[in-house]
């Protein structure tokens, strides 16, 4: 394509953009085909789920039905599952955003005893695999009587070294002149943080919010270990156990999977800018 540079630039442009759209449509459709099949199957009657597997018709719910969704709502306590999940995510996030940003700010801008040590520990632990410490953490929960409680789900993840580090590195860039101006106005360090620093750092908060939300939403192992009763289940646990519960209806399973994808999809659509920025920011900051 490059060789025809001297010929008609316009023709190359059209050829290039045709190649771009055609290539992406073909690759993109193949890429998402498992998800398309999932959605299609969720609208098929049970007898049709595995019909026409070798033809393109398998991606089309010919005998369209919403019955699978009705079945999911009948067999699962959806409001409770969603409630558990959003309580879990919401409370961990509130803790992480408030405590994390306070700590990050103190480390970045305030001089106090032990600051260097704390910073070193937080950086060292920010990429630690929690999987390595889940056993004693579980024992700790039994000793506190927190197994199968909201507290047991939430507290261990209310603090996240990586979030503190994200806040810390972002607050480092805040000009000191701002703080000085606030202090001349008679603001103490904490007031300055609340009324000056927080409002101008919305992007940082949105970034940490999104990253944390993704992590908590996807988390399977900790909720799986610490909750024992069906009434404390999160979305991921409900999906996993629904898969193994009789009667196994594949149409209903696909409906449950589709439903379980909707909340994150909504977050992605409404917060796309921050979502993408958040992921990208880890690459730049890290």
């Amino acid at each position: 394509m490059d060789k025809s540079r001297t010929a008609s630039i316009r023709r190359t442009k059209i050829a290039k953009s045709t190649a771009f759209y055609l290539g992406n449509i073909i690759i993109g459709v193949i890429f998402v085909s498992p998800l398309l099949w999932m959605i299609a199957a969720s609208f098929k009657p049970e007898n049709d789920v595995f019909a026409n597997m070798t033809s393109i018709l398998t991606f089309i719910p010919v005998n369209f039905t919403a019955g699978n969704y009705v079945e999911v709502f009948q067999r699962l306590n959806i409001p409770q599952i969603l409630g558990n999940t959003f309580l879990y995510i919401g409370l961990t996030l509130v803790g992480d955003l408030i405590f994390g940003s306070m700590c990050g700010y103190a480390l970045a801008k305030l001089k106090f005893r032990g600051r260097g040590l704390i910073l070193t520990i937080i950086i060292a632990l920010s990429s630690m695999p929690v999987e390595a410490i889940l056993l004693p953490l579980y024992i700790e929960m039994t000793q506190l009587g927190w197994v199968n409680t909201l507290a047991g789900l939430v507290f261990p993840f209310m603090m996240n070294c990586f979030s503190i580090y994200m806040f810390y590195s972002n607050f480092l860039d805040v000009p000191d002149a701002l703080r000085e101006a606030a202090s001349l106005d008679g603001c103490g360090a904490f007031r300055t943080f609340i009324s000056v620093i927080m409002p101008i750092s919305k992007t940082t908060y949105a970034t940490v919010f999104i990253l944390d939300f993704i992590a908590r939403w996807n988390d399977f192992m900790w909720p799986f270990l610490v909750t024992t009763g069906a009434d404390k289940r999160t979305v991921q646990l409900a999906v996993q156990s629904f898969f193994g519960t009789n009667p196994v209806h594949y149409g209903a399973i696909m409906a449950a999977l589709t439903l379980a994808s909707l909340p994150m999809l909504a977050i992605y659509i409404f917060m796309q800018k921050y979502y993408v920025q958040g992921i990208a920011a880890t690459g730049i900051k890290g």
């Binding site: 306070m102 103190a106 704390i118 953490l137 700790e140 507290f155 261990p156 993840f157």
Partner: peptide, 24 residues
């Protein structure tokens, strides 16, 4: 003031850090 405020502001996170990360 900074010394005290700095320590106080990082305290909640530090307590959680010790309780649910360092101790485990």
């Amino acid at each position: 003031g900074e010394k005290v405020t700095g320590a106080l502001m990082s305290l909640p996170a530090i307590i959680l850090l010790i309780a649910f990360l360092i101790i485990p």
